[in-house]
Structure formats: structure tokens, C-alpha cells
């Protein structure tokens, strides 16, 4: 029994690349899920996806200029992501279009531009790497970068937390309270871009969204409190990233998809058996029709 545990859970980490991969995954699991929770609460779940595409041309440009250097590619990604976010905001402010419509237009342009750029300068292997990542190829520089960005995200999130909550619930109230209420939204989008840039090395630009959104959407089935949502989402993300990594090691399957699929399995499980709004919760409510209202 102990042997089995050892073989499954301990010995994989004898390898340096597995140790770096698990630390990188855990760091991302701390930073990404809270952002996902806020995205879900703001009804912006699809914006994460859009932003993930938006960073691609920047990453591609970095790749063309400096080869496979994570810092350069990350800087390119952050700059491009912020630019797209600003452009989308500007287009929607000009009137006519809602921000999500503008964002949808820009992200598809970005995706095409990114794929075009990488194909011009590299091979299809490079393309696959950027789109789907390879957590097992993280070196120490990349790990430091990921951990640094994750730390920064958590710290900034702690500072703007209350403003973010108030803005989610009632943007009008925040606008009344503060002359600079617009910064909350911008800071939030900035954190989003940062997080996706940290995630693309490990999971790829497309799958980095998964570690942000899936734990957050799953947590909605387990808690009705903000702290609860964030806590549960972080735990789910940690389990998914570590579990997915082990699965990929033992079954010899690609690491990014196995992490996200494991998180996806968590989502389906939550939707079926979670405490609130799940299928099981609905069935439970049907079998116990009359519940006495307490309090009041």
C-alpha cells in the first residue's frame, strides 16, 4: 500500500522537471481562481477566453524577436493584452457597441494575427507549444517568473479587493463614491492579462483560461459566500493541477489537457452533486417540499 502511494505520489517528484511543474502549477492555482470567481460574478466569464487570445500576437512577436525566451514572450503578451483591452474599452466608449462585442472582434483578430506570426517565424511545433503549453518544460527562470507574477496578482488583488466587490455588486454606487472608480476595472483587466501570461507557458494561451474559470464555475455549486467561493476554487485548482500532472506522468498523456480535463471533471461532478443549484440539490428539494422558514 505504502509502496503504491510512493510510486504514484512521491517518486514522480524525484525528477526536477516534475518538481518545477508542480510548483508552477500550485502558484498559478493561487492566483488564477480568484480572478475567475470575479469574472463569473461580473457576468464576464467569456472575457477570460477573449483575453487569452488577445495576448497571442504579443507572445508571437516576442518569440520572433528573441526565440523561446519566456520573459520576452511574457512582456509581449502583457503589452498586447493590455492594448487589446484598452482598444475594446475605447471602442465601446465611442458608443454603439458593448464592450463584449468589441472584445469578441478584437480577440479573433488577435488569434489570427498570432497564429500567422508564429507560422511565419517558426514551425508547427512552436505553434503547438504556444497554444497548448508544456508545463514539463519549465526551467528555473520560467518558474521564478510564474511565481513572481502569481505573487504580484495575489497582493494587488488583496489591495483592491473591496473596491472590486463593490464594483461587481453595484457599479453605480462605486462611481458615486470615487472619482477614479474606472481604475478598478482597468486594474482587474490588467491582472487578468498578467495571469494569462503567467499561465501560457505551462498550459498554453488557450488552456490557461481553464485553470481560471473551471474551479470558479465549480465553486458556485458549493458555496454562497465570496470567501467560500474563492477558497474552494483555489483548492480545486490545486488538486486539478497536481492531479493532472501526476496523471500525465503515469499515463504518458499531455500535461495541459489532463490538468484542464481533471478540472472539467470537477466541474461536472459539482454540477451533479454540489450543495447548491446542482442536479442533486434540485432532486433533494423536490423530495422535501415543505421547509419551515426560520428566523424572521
Amino acid at each position: 500500500m505504502l509502496d503504491l502511494l510512493n510510486v504514484w505520489f512521491v517518486s514522480p517528484f524525484d525528477y526536477g522537471f516534475m518538481r518545477r511543474a508542480v510548483v508552477g502549477g500550485l502558484a498559478l492555482s493561487l492566483a488564477a481562481p480568484p480572478l475567475g470567481v470575479f469574472l463569473v460574478l461580473r457576468g464576464m466569464s467569456l472575457i477570460g477566453d477573449a483575453m487569452a487570445h488577445a495576448i497571442l500576437p504579443g507572445v508571437a512577436l516576442g518569440f520572433l524577436l528573441a526565440g523561446f525566451s519566456l520573459p520576452i514572450m511574457s512582456i509581449g503578451g502583457v503589452l498586447f493584452g493590455l492594448m487589446v483591452a484598452l482598444l475594446a474599452g475605447a471602442v465601446s466608449k465611442m458608443g454603439g457597441q458593448r464592450e463584449d462585442a468589441a472584445m469578441a472582434s478584437f480577440f479573433i483578430i488577435s488569434l489570427a494575427a498570432g497564429v500567422m506570426l508564429i507560422s511565419l517565424g517558426g514551425s508547427s511545433v512552436d505553434l503547438t507549444h504556444v497554444l497548448f503549453g508544456s508545463i514539463l518544460a519549465i526551467n528555473s527562470t520560467a518558474l521564478l517568473l510564474i511565481a513572481g507574477i502569481s505573487t504580484l496578482i495575489v497582493l494587488i488583488l488583496a489591495v483592491v479587493f473591496r473596491a472590486l466587490v463593490v464594483e461587481c455588486l453595484d457599479p453605480l454606487f462605486l462611481r458615486g463614491q470615487s472619482r477614479r472608480s474606472g481604475w478598478v476595472h482597468s486594474v482587474f483587466l490588467g491582472l487578468l492579462v498578467l495571469n494569462l501570461t503567467a499561465g501560457f507557458q505551462t498550459l498554453g494561451t488557450l488552456m490557461a483560461v481553464g485553470l481560471m474559470m473551471l474551479p470558479a464555475t465549480s465553486a458556485r455549486f458549493w458555496s454562497k459566500r465570496l470567501e467560500g467561493l474563492i477558497g474552494i476554487a483555489i483548492v480545486l485548482a490545486m488538486v486539478a493541477s497536481t492531479g493532472g500532472l501526476l496523471l500525465s506522468f503515469h499515463l504518458d498523456i499531455p500535461s495541459g489537457p489532463s490538468i484542464i480535463l481533471l478540472a472539467g471533471f470537477g466541474y461536472l461532478f459539482s454540477a451533479l452533486f454540489g450543495r447548491y443549484h446542482s442536479l442533486a440539490a434540485k432532486l433533494r428539494r423536490k423530495t422535501t417540499p415543505l421547509e419551515v422558514e426560520q428566523g424572521a
Binding site: 463593490v166 461587481c168 465570496l226
Partner: peptide, 30 residues
């Protein structure tokens, strides 16, 4: 400006927002 309060009609509040009554009241101390 921060002493002006505007309460829209039954507010366009997201009713599923995970916040308690006390937390909502406390945001007024801004």
C-alpha cells in the same frame, strides 16, 4: 459627491451575488 446616494428602482442588483446584509450595509462606510 460621496455623500450623495442614489437608490435605483429595486436596484439592478445581481441577486445571486454572494454577499450578506451586513456586508452590504458596511460598504456604505466608504
Amino acid at each position: 459627491k460621496e455623500r450623495r446616494a442614489w437608490l435605483p428602482q429595486q436596484l439592478a442588483l445581481d441577486l445571486t451575488f454572494p454577499m450578506s446584509v451586513e456586508e452590504l450595509v458596511m460598504t456604505g462606510s466608504w
